[in-house]
């Protein structure tokens, strides 16, 4: 299958800390790929490298076959028009209302009239179940709603790839489920490639087409959730045991 994003032998160090030690990852187009791993392993670094926010010390990062570190600023901007990002803390503009946050990409990147912008913004906000909060500021809405507004902003230009950096961190079960439902709805409708960095194992496996583990600065496979849970790879096996605990044996039995 054609990869939307491809990282080859990516290395990145911060001072003496060697975070990525030769990452190889191929993210298939139109599918949902989940990146899991322990805290501080550098999972978010994979997203930031893919977005071109961080340059690797060595190795290549290709998006739709373009090496994003070998192209100029204008070309990188062009590549980024295909991206939508839901940041860990939502990264909403705190001095703008919910409506203006979602409208911003349309105002800055298109020449649509304000009426059309209003229609698109309301359509996306309704898709996210955020109704009647147009004039509220990010500080006036709940964490779950912030995430949904962030997702509305990420999909407002119908991007081809959406990155989710820890989309449910800090949310309770109910709010997490709201985000997952919003994800299901939007992906079914827009058919985008999703890259999700998450801690929410095993629930997140239900969303996944492929799962990859970042361990010790190296990606361990990019396989289906079922294969991941049954993998004999010692790093994956240990991760599955630690994160799924008691569920592990019953899930394995179920899969067998």
């Amino acid at each position: 299958m054609k990869p939307a994003i491809e990282l080859k032998d990516v290395h990145k160090s911060y001072g003496t800390q060697h975070v990525l030690r030769g990452v190889n990852l191929s993210i298939p187009e139109g599918k949902t790929t989940i990146i899991v791993g322990g805290s501080g392993q550098g999972k978010s670094q994979i997203i930031k490298h893919s977005l071109g926010l961080i340059r690797p010390d060595s190795g290549t990062v290709k998006v739709f076959d373009k090496d994003i570190n070998a192209i100029n600023k204008k070309q990188l901007k062009e590549v980024r028009t295909h991206f939508g990002v839901l940041f860990q803390n939502s990264a909403l503009f705190d001095s703008m209302t919910v409506y203006d946050n979602v409208a911003l990409p349309l105002r800055e990147r298109t020449k649509f009239a304000e009426e059309k912008i209003s229609d698109i913004v309301h359509e996306k906000l309704e898709m996210m179940d955020v109704v009647g909060s147009d004039d509220k500021y990010p500080a006036q809405i709940s964490g779950g709603m912030k995430k949904r507004v962030g997702l509305a902003r990420a999909i407002v230009l119908d991007p081809k790839i959406i990155f989710f950096d820890e989309p449910t961190t800090g949310l309770d079960v109910e709010k997490s489920n709201e985000i997952y439902r919003a994800f299901f709805r939007t992906q079914a409708q827009l058919q985008y490639t999703a890259v999700i960095v998450s801690h929410d194992v095993p629930k997140i496996f239900k969303l996944a087409d492929y799962v990859s583990l970042l361990f010790d600065g190296v990606m361990q496979g990019c396989i289906t959730p079922e294969e991941f849970q049954l993998s004999e790879n010692p790093a994956i096996k240990s991760f599955v045991r630690e994160t799924m605990g008691e569920l592990y044996s019953s899930e394995v039995e179920g899969l067998l």
């Binding site: 930031k48 926010l53 901007k77 980024r80 940041f87 990264a91 705190d94 990147r109």
Partner: peptide, 22 residues
Amino acid sequence: GIMRISEQIDALDCMAIDPHKY
């Protein structure tokens, strides 16, 4: 500075909106 640490500047970059211009 607050826009930077709360990833709002990164968000602009990711939306292909030039933070210098905006």
